[in-house]
């Protein structure tokens, strides 16, 4: 099964999981930072990869991409992408504004982005786990700060001949008047979507 062929009900279920997951993530982030952080999911979309790259500004656009693998009955990959212009604001909310130099992300900034990826992935997976009764375990995230085409390409390669489509959950972090947008990509391995939908009771 491919993201391309989902019916309306299945799309709605995925969006709802996105909403529940972001609620969980906001709670986790607020607890970690001891400040109120809100999160919103302005949009959930299913797009072919080339289009994803164009939306993010073309293959050469500089982004931070944090990747982790999920094992269990429905294995998948999760990639969290922060556009360059969001990185500073994002770090501002998490660890205070940083002086980002062209050379890359310093260790603390990198850890902060990876930790948030952990929290986001954990939150969505918890939502999925509650709804499906399945167990998931996630790997430690790895981070790249480079051209988005190169990063997405590398992730896409792990799928080989599989889906060229991704589920993208736009994720908005809100603290008072600060708003930062990132994109969370969910990339199920072959068979995983079927397993998920079967457990969720929305088999086509």
């Amino acid at each position: 099964m491919d993201f391309q062929n989902l019916n309306t009900l299945q799309r709605d279920v995925l969006k709802e999981i996105g909403n529940i997951g972001s609620g969980n993530a906001a709670t986790a982030l607020s607890t970690m930072l001891n400040r109120k952080i809100n999160m919103g999911v302005p949009n959930v979309s299913i797009l072919p990869f080339p289009q994803v790259i164009e939306i993010l500004g073309g293959p050469e656009t500089l982004v931070a991409g944090s990747y982790l693998q999920v094992e269990g009955e429905a294995p998948m990959s999760i990639l969290f992408v922060l556009p360059e212009e969001s990185i500073n604001l994002f770090l501002g909310i998490l660890i205070g504004e940083r002086e980002l130099e062209g050379k890359g992300l310093d260790e603390l900034s990198a850890s902060a982005i990876k930790e948030v990826t952990n929290i986001l992935a954990g939150s969505y997976l918890t939502a999925l786990s509650v709804l499906t009764n399945m167990d998931f375990s996630q790997s430690v995230p790895s981070l790249a700060y480079d051209m988005v085409g190169a990063i997405l390409g590398n992730v896409l390669q792990l799928y080989g001949e599989i889906s060229d489509y991704a589920l993208i959950i736009d994720t908005m972090f809100i603290e008072e008047d600060k708003k930062v947008q990132g994109h969370l990509f969910l990339l199920p391995e072959p068979g995983s979507l079927e397993t998920l939908f079967e457990q969720l009771g929305v088999v086509s």
Binding site: Y67, Q157, L158
Partner: peptide, 14 residues
């Protein structure tokens, strides 16, 4: 042929 995620366990596809 790079490896974008340096220290990961990802297969060395590059």
């Amino acid at each position: 042929g790079a490896q974008m995620f340096g220290n990961s366990t990802m297969m060395r596809i590059g």
